[in-house]
Computed example of a mutant assay.
Amino acid sequence: MAPGPEGTARTRIVDVAQASGYSPSVVSRVLSGKGDVTAQTRSQILAIAHELGYERHGEFRGRPSIPPKLIDLTFLYFDNPWTAQVIAGALKAASALGFDVLLTTEQDDANADWVRRTQSRGVAGAIICQIRPTSEELRLLARSRIPIVLLDPRSETSEAVPSVGTDDRQGGYDAGQHLAATPATRFIGLVGTPQYRFGRARMDGFVDAISTLRPGAKVEIVQIPWSHWHATQAVLPIIKATDDVIGIFACNDAMATGVYSAAAQAGKAIPTDIHVVGFDDEPTSRLLSPPLTTLKYPLREAAAAAVQLIADAAQGVAMPTERIEVPSQLIARGSTRTVSG
Rank of each mutant, 00 (worst) to 15 (best):
G192D: 08
F187R: 05
G172K: 03
A241V: 02
T185N: 10
I238Y: 05
P215C: 11
V191I: 14
L236S: 06
A175I: 06
L179W: 05
M203I: 15
I210N: 03
Q170G: 00
A175W: 02
D167W: 04
H178T: 09
I210M: 07
T185R: 15
T182L: 08
V235F: 02
D208C: 05
W229M: 10
Q195M: 13
G205V: 10
G216D: 12
W226C: 04
V222Q: 12
T232F: 06
W226A: 10
I224V: 15
D168A: 14
D208E: 15
D208L: 12
R200W: 01
A234K: 09
W226D: 05
K218Q: 14
M203E: 10
W226P: 01
R169I: 01
T166K: 02
F198V: 04
E220L: 12
W229H: 13
M203T: 13
T232H: 13
R200K: 15
T182W: 05
R202N: 05
G172S: 08
H178F: 01
V222E: 11
D204E: 15
M203S: 04
R186W: 06
V219T: 13
T242G: 06
V191Q: 14
A201Y: 02
I239K: 07
H228M: 10
I224N: 03
L190K: 09
F198L: 11
L190N: 07
P183G: 11
D168K: 07
I239S: 04
R169C: 04
R169Q: 14
K240W: 01
Q177Y: 06
A175L: 04
T193R: 15
Q177T: 07
A181F: 00
D208S: 14
Q170K: 13
I221E: 13
V222L: 15
G216W: 12
F206Q: 10
R197W: 09
P183Y: 05
R169P: 00
F187S: 09
F187A: 08
L213M: 12
D204K: 13
A184F: 03
R214D: 04
P225F: 04
P237C: 10
R197G: 00
V235T: 08
R186T: 14
Q177E: 13
V219A: 09
Y173S: 04
Q170E: 14
V222D: 03
H228F: 12
K218R: 15
R186A: 12
A180H: 03
A234R: 06
L190C: 07
